[in-house]
Write a protein that binds this DNA or RNA. Structure first.
Length: 225
DNA sequence: GCGACAG
DNA sequence: ATCTTGTCGC
């Protein structure tokens, strides 16, 4: 699986911002996908010891949530962590990992925001646009916006607002646990995104897909480094 | 000036 | 990402 849209990753900060502004015009915020048979969860970890990024992708069969495929790749760091330019650091390693994937997912759940971003182009939207695939953005913490705390029961949610604009949802995936910041990545509506996250997170704080990827990354890091 | 700032 | 417990203050 490879990107349908390729661009230079070796950019200065101002160029990266300009590219985000251009590519954000391509983001679709409505449901636009075929029947979903497979869902991918992606996560990236950084190893200080080796100064490498480790990207993990887990493919789940959508109705059983069984893992059907997974892959881990290492990649060198090419871009610093800058708030708002997160995708320029992590996405190249994810693209590399997707080259190994044999099972085509119809939906990708990302550990990073979608349009809940200053230029409406977080990592999930960036991934969605360059692969032209539906994506959901998930954040453990907020990047941007105002919200009221959702009530404590699982499934409760409130809207994440930037001024008058709805940019995401603050979703309680488990009772008594901090809510998850869910936003549209690409080719999906906010409502559908939240429904998928609830379907994928019956037991975990994070979507099961990204949690699985997280565990894979940690397993590899503890064994190799 | 001060705080906030995905990982 | 990680550190990390209490009780201050527009």
């Amino acid at each position: 699986m490879k990107p349908v849209l390729k661009h230079n990753w070796d950019l200065a900060e101002t160029e990266a911002i300009k590219l985000q502004q251009e590519l954000s015009k391509k983001v679709t915020k409505e449901d636009q996908f075929p029947e979903i048979h497979y869902v991918a969860g992606v996560d990236v970890a950084y190893s200080e010891q080796s100064d490498l990024l480790v990207a993990a992708i887990v493919i789940l069969e959508a109705h059983s949530l069984n893992i059907v495929e997974s892959v881990i790749v290492e990649d060198s760091v090419q871009f610093p962590y800058i708030s708002g330019l997160f995708s320029f650091r992590e996405l190249p390693s994810i693209v590399k990992a997707f080259r190994q994937i044999k099972t085509f997912p119809q939906l990708v759940v990302c550990d990073g925001q979608g349009i809940a971003h200053p230029r409406r182009f977080g990592l999930a939207s960036h991934l969605g646009v360059i692969f032209d695939i539906p994506t959901i953005g998930c954040g453990k913490t907020k990047l941007l916006g105002d919200f009221q705390e959702p009530s404590k029961e699982r499934g409760a949610c409130s809207l994440l607002m930037d001024r008058e604009e709805i940019i995401g949802s603050v979703l309680r995936t488990q009772e008594n646990i901090k809510p998850l910041f869910v936003s549209v990545g690409h080719r999906i509506s906010l409502e559908t995104a939240c429904n998928w996250i609830l379907k994928l997170s019956p037991r975990y704080r994070l979507p099961e897909t990204t949690r699985q990827a997280d565990q894979l990354v940690k397993k590899v890091l503890s064994k190799i480094y």
